[in-house]
């Protein structure tokens, strides 16, 4: 690092005397590199961000977003309506519960798995298991839904085993009481291996002499993991936690949408699935769905700030 920094400083010295305009002109090629991405960002993320003002308007297709009139209550009518919207409230609570359930049940699994994988001595085996565990991440939730239906359907292998053992058939797909647990476990099955990569990469970067010294002092493997490995990955754990917290209002549309059904709406309908159904299946008012979406984004953003603050206090390192 220091060597390259020194060299780039040297290179910089040549440009420092230049005026701002000359520096911009000198780097014109660099701006051109950013241009296509800038265009893409402006059109497909920043224009929609501005379009979110629709949340404060009575949308009419004829007038478009900008010329549609503002709603009553200083534009907050749609938000006010949400307070008395039973299915929105249901979806809101489901979203919060499922998100925190994910933090509680799903989040620790890759960390644990990474620590266990790290205990495997032969690198060849370690890589083999990693390859196997990571694979489901690359398969879409649509495919997973097919796989899951196949396993758990009436004539599937799970019920086959249950019947063979003298038990009753179950249907986890339409059982509201166990559906959230079903979401957590399928998500762990799919994503836990993928989640280990970042932790294993961090572990690889730990200075081996730390372990060497501890082993000479007679540390057990558990002690090595507890007092060297864990503190070394703690800051990465913190960052991952912040990212997880900042998407608390998302709760995994992709998974829920492909696994849920009317029988479990009560437990599984989240804000995103509600927005989708309302807008594209039932064809309700665009503006009120926009209001829900904006509400979601604002909470997520607030959670990012809160999460970053808390994690920074606890581990000394946040994402900014």
């Amino acid at each position: 690092m220091s060597e390259t920094a020194l060299k780039s400083k040297k290179a910089d010295r040549g440009t420092r005397w230049r005026s701002l305009r000359e520096r911009i002109w000198y780097n014109r090629g660099i701006y051109l590199f950013f241009l296509p991405a800038l265009a893409a960002y402006l059109v497909f993320t920043y224009v929609p961000m501005y379009g979110a003002i629709l949340a404060f308007k009575d949308f009419s297709f004829k007038l478009g977003i900008l010329r549609s009139p503002w709603t009553s209550m200083n534009g907050f009518q749609h938000f006010y309506d949400l307070l008395s919207d039973a299915s929105f409230k249901k979806a809101f609570f489901n979203t919060v519960i499922i998100s925190f359930g994910r933090i509680l049940f799903e989040f620790p699994v890759p960390i644990l798995l990474a620590l266990l994988l790290n205990e495997i001595r032969k690198n060849r085996y370690k890589r083999f298991f990693q390859t196997v565990f990571t694979f489901p991440h690359f398969v879409s939730w649509i495919i997973i839904s097919g796989i899951v239906f196949n396993l758990f359907s009436d004539s599937g292998v799970v019920n086959g085993i249950l019947v063979t053992l003298g038990g009753q058939k179950i249907n986890v797909l339409t059982q509201p009481s166990t559906f959230r647990a079903f979401l957590y476990s399928t998500s762990i099955w799919k994503e836990a291996g993928w989640g280990t990569i970042i932790y294993l990469a961090t572990i690889t970067g730990i200075n081996p002499s730390l372990y060497e010294a501890a082993i000479v002092d007679g540390a057990s493997r558990f002690q090595l993991a507890r007092y060297i490995t864990w503190p070394s990955i703690l800051s990465v754990v913190g960052v991952m936690l912040i990212l997880q917290i900042s998407s608390v209002m998302n709760a995994g549309f992709d998974q829920v949408f492909n696994l849920y059904n009317a029988a479990v709406y009560d437990k599984a309908d989240i804000i995103d699935t509600l927005i989708y159904r309302r807008t594209f299946v039932k064809g309700m008012d665009f503006a009120s769905s926009t209001a829900i979406g904006l509400f979601k984004s604002v909470i997520n953003f607030a959670m990012l700030l809160v999460g970053n603050f808390v994690v920074k206090k606890a581990t000394g390192k946040g994402i900014y």
Binding site: F34, A37, L38, Y41, V43, F44, T45, Y46, V47, P48, M49, Y50, G51, A52, L54, A55, I65, S246, D272, I275, Y276, T279, F286, A287, S289, T290, I292, G293, L294, K296, S297, N300, F301, L304
Partner: peptide, 22 residues
């Protein structure tokens, strides 16, 4: 430039405005 790229990671206009824009 960096901030322009970062913001969409943490904030979005939501599904409907995106739909209308596209």
């Amino acid at each position: 430039l960096f901030i322009i790229a970062i913001i969409p990671m943490f904030f979005s206009g939501g599904l409907i405005p995106y739909y209308l824009t596209v």
